[in-house]
């Protein structure tokens, strides 16, 4: 190999090595801290007691929401969007964020990533169940920002 090609190869190895190792890549937005273990247990019990929330938990997973959002009570670890077990919004507002995710963007997160077609691929009941699930987790103490007396929709 000529010295030029050797230098090029070294440059490629170093540049990709650093990028793959994550050096200088910043990492995902810090977001809210995960809730404590006791709060997660309370949140799990709250989901089990609320049939709509339990249905919403299933929809949350089947619609792939867990790929981007974290909820400790269900083991969802997504980091592309904000964690939702600290979401203190009422059910109606959360449901609105599902159907129209571009209007209220959490600080530090990308505005365009979340699909905008949930209103067409999910029924109103399913969206409401997901919103109820999120609100139930937060209100149960799954997140520090959870309301204890949310409006329930």
């Amino acid at each position: 190999m000529t010295p030029v090609r050797t230098a090029l190869a070294a440059l490629v190895v170093v540049a990709f090595g650093l990028a793959i190792a994550g050096a200088g890549m910043g990492g995902p937005p810090a977001g809210d801290p995960a809730p404590k273990t006791a709060a997660v247990t309370v949140a799990k019990q709250a989901i089990a007691r609320n049939a709509t929330a339990a249905e919403g938990a299933k929809e949350f997973e089947s619609e792939g929401c867990d790929a981007c959002h974290a909820i400790a009570a269900t083991g969802a670890k997504g980091k592309l969007g904000p964690r939702l077990d600290t979401d203190s919004d009422p059910v109606r507002e959360t449901a609105g964020n599902v159907t129209d995710p571009r209007t209220d963007i959490a600080e530090g997160y990308e505005a365009k990533l979340m699909p905008t077609d949930y209103a067409s691929r999910m029924s109103a009941e399913e969206i409401r169940a997901v919103a109820t699930f999120i609100h139930t987790v937060s209100a149960a103490g799954g997140g520090s920002g959870g309301k204890k007396d949310g409006d329930g929709g």
Partner: peptide, 15 residues
């Protein structure tokens, strides 16, 4: 390739 590596560390690693 480099942008994919950057996105991997920006949250896609969990997907």
């Amino acid at each position: 390739g480099l942008e994919h590596a950057r996105l991997f560390h920006r949250g896609y690693a969990e997907v």
